[in-house]
């Protein structure tokens, strides 16, 4: 993923997003329908073998997907929105479409970082698509197919900040969401971690000068810079690699191949690209090369 490094470029991107935000300000669901035109498979249940989770879902005509509600660009649901918008919900729509399930029949459920595994294990949701970085620890208890997107951790600082390299964060206070991997990584760099409940609270702490910087995946930061182009900037090249995967229950290992096939098809037919452009791409990021999927365990 190419990330803009200069303030001017970020500001220009900001204007772009601000305009598009203003454009959809009146009807919060506009953006939701924009990217959501994926061809819904007909008689999808016939495409799957008996006894598979996909067959079960396709026959029931409903699917429950866990997404984040507080990450602009990735998965976000405003107080007045009917359904969440962002890149993750778009991936969810692509997967649902291959099961023959239209957008209206998808049940969205908010997942936070803490409850993604329990939700999958207890069958609370069928899929988790929630900026869910693939790790060995998680793959030990749930299935993760992917990556469908690769991003990296960066820093966001006030526009007049002196911080412009990772070495500068030593001894500073850096905000992120309590319990997140980003917070651990920045602590390892010598900063004091300041965990808050949501990213927007962190943005406020940076804006009013209580903390020196905020850190999380670059894509999320760019969304906030776009909202405050004069006050904030993103610095530092990505210093971690987060590979977002689709979470599914270990009880249905057959889902891995289906997720892999479906998203790879979306790579080829342009659905993935249009999903990206309609969401994360709005902050001015170029559409990256789609990442290659890990092989599913046979």
């Amino acid at each position: 993923m190419r990330i803009m490094r200069t303030r001017a470029a970020a500001a220009a991107a900001g204007v772009g997003l601000a305009l598009s935000l203003a454009a959809c300000g009146e009807a919060g669901t506009d953006t939701a329908t924009e990217g959501g035109d994926y061809e819904v498979a007909e008689n999808a249940a016939d495409n799957f073998d008996d006894g598979t989770k996909m067959k079960e879902l396709a026959e029931s005509g409903e699917v429950t997907i866990g997404v984040k509600y507080d990450q602009p660009g990735i998965g976000f649901k405003g107080a007045t929105d009917d359904i969440p918008v962002g890149f993750d919900p778009e991936i969810g729509k692509i997967l649902a479409a291959s099961l023959g399930i239209p957008v209206d029949d998808i049940t969205w459920k908010e997942t936070i970082s803490d409850n993604r595994e329990p939700f999958l294990q207890e069958g609370e949701v069928d899929l988790v698509i929630a900026s869910y970085s693939i790790t060995d620890e998680r793959r030990a208890i749930v299935g993760q197919a992917g990556p469908y997107y690769v991003t990296g951790q960066q820093l966001m600082v006030p526009a007049d900040s002196d911080i412009d390299s990772l070495d500068d964060v030593k001894g500073t206070e850096v905000c992120s969401v309590t319990g997140s991997t980003s917070l651990d990584n920045i602590e390892a760099e010598g900063a004091t971690p300041r965990g808050f409940d949501t990213y927007s609270e962190c943005v406020d702490q940076v804006l009013n000068g209580t903390v020196d910087a905020m850190t999380t995946d670059g894509a999320i930061l760019l969304g906030y810079v776009a909202e405050h182009p004069d006050d904030l900037k993103v610095v530092v090249d990505p210093f971690s690699e987060e590979r977002y995967g689709v979470g599914y229950s270990k009880d249905s290992p057959e889902m891995c191949q289906w997720i892999s096939d479906t998203i790879n098809e979306a790579y080829d037919n342009g659905d993935w690209e249009s999903a990206f452009k309609a969401t994360l791409g709005e902050s001015g990021v170029d559409t990256p090369e789609p990442p290659e999927f890990d092989a599913c365990e046979a």
């Binding site: 970082s113 803490d114 620890e137 998680r138 030990a140 208890i141 319990g179 997140s180 651990d184 965990g195």
Partner: peptide, 9 residues
């Protein structure tokens, strides 16, 4: 919360 996030197992 940090530990449970990193060590879901």
């Amino acid at each position: 919360r940090g530990l449970t996030n990193n060590n879901a197992d």
